[in-house]
């Protein structure tokens, strides 16, 4: 294999990305355009997150990659292997041991601390995109703080369904200024965004945007006084580790509609099992 620079990207490109990250940190929630590069994996598969990770990784870092909360999903494996190969960094599946965590669609259950960086892969960074397809318009709306359209959309949901019918990528407001897409995390994870000790960086490669939340940023999920935001999850305990406070995936276990629920955060689940918490589908007694 050809010798690549540390973490694949050349130093000039990394500097360009770091400048975008710094700008993003200085203006929390603001989408900073950056000259995204073509990566050796497809757009839409985490190229934004990969570029951000490449720009922040140092040789001493310990890197963790999760996709849907799991370390062993195929794309997480692929990205972890990419950095093992191009950066030679230590990798881990343990949330606490990692210094940089790249994630797709989840925030780990275990609270992060101030030495850590959480890098999100973002497909569509623009929270207003599905209300207004034009980038030139949405940028204007952000600069004028013109978020009426978003509130109308949420209001229409309530009048039609009785609830806000957004279950993931639930929009948030950052420090009372920018409305931000938290990437397609389930809204269960939204409360973890605010006041987090770790740095949160969001990279959208195809859309050429980077944005960021510095530590302890105020992040509020959009809602109405009479319809407050509600983080939701399946109303069950984990079948494997009996956790009742974690986000659960639903699995179909037979062809008669049998279901079980299990933590989407594999590291959290395994650590709990190792500590002796056993769920009802794992030989334990009912976790209720």
């Amino acid at each position: 294999m050809i010798e690549y620079n540390f973490a694949y990207l050349d130093e000039q490109t990394k500097r360009m990305i770091r400048r975008a990250i710094l700008k993003g940190l200085a203006i929390p929630g603001y989408q900073v355009p950056f000259a995204s590069r073509e990566m050796p994996m497809p757009y839409g598969w985490g190229t934004g997150g990969v570029q951000v990770s490449a720009a922040v990784l140092t040789p001493d870092d310990t890197f963790k990659v999760i996709d849907q909360g799991a370390d062993d999903t195929t794309n997480a494996v692929s990205i972890r292997t990419f950095f093992e190969r191009t950066a030679g960094v230590q990798t881990t599946t343990a949330t606490q041991e990692a210094t940089v965590i790249q994630t797709r669609h989840r925030i780990p259950e275990e609270p992060l601390n101030d030495g850590q960086i959480l890098v999100y892969q973002v497909p569509i960074p623009e929270p207003l995109r599905f209300l207004e397809p034009r980038e030139s318009e949405t940028r204007k709306m952000h600069s004028l703080e013109e978020y009426g359209l978003m509130h109308v959309k949420l209001y229409e949901d309530i009048s039609r369904h009785g609830h806000i019918a957004t279950s993931y990528a639930y929009p948030v407001k950052v420090e009372g200024r920018y409305v931000m897409d938290p990437s397609p995390i389930p809204k269960f994870d939204n409360p973890k965004l605010g006041d987090m000790a770790a740095i949160q960086l969001f990279g959208a490669g195809r859309e050429q945007r980077i944005y960021a939340l510095p530590p302890y940023t105020q992040v509020t999920s959009l809602d109405f006084e009479d319809h407050p935001f509600e983080a939701s999850k399946a109303d069950h305990g984990c079948g494997m580790c009996a956790a009742t406070d974690s986000y659960l995936d639903e699995l179909i276990i037979d062809d008669t509609g049998g279901r079980m629920f299990v933590c989407s955060d594999t590291d959290y689940c395994e650590a709990r099992q190792a500590a002796g918490h056993i769920g009802k589908d794992n030989g334990g007694k009912d976790a209720a």
Binding site: P42, Y43, W45, G69, T73, N75, P186, Y247, L248, S264
Partner: peptide, 15 residues
């Protein structure tokens, strides 16, 4: 890339 990324797992969002 974006079209084909919908092949990736979306368990969490789907849930």
């Amino acid at each position: 890339g974006f079209l084909e990324h919908i092949k990736l797992p979306h368990y969490v969002d789907f849930q």
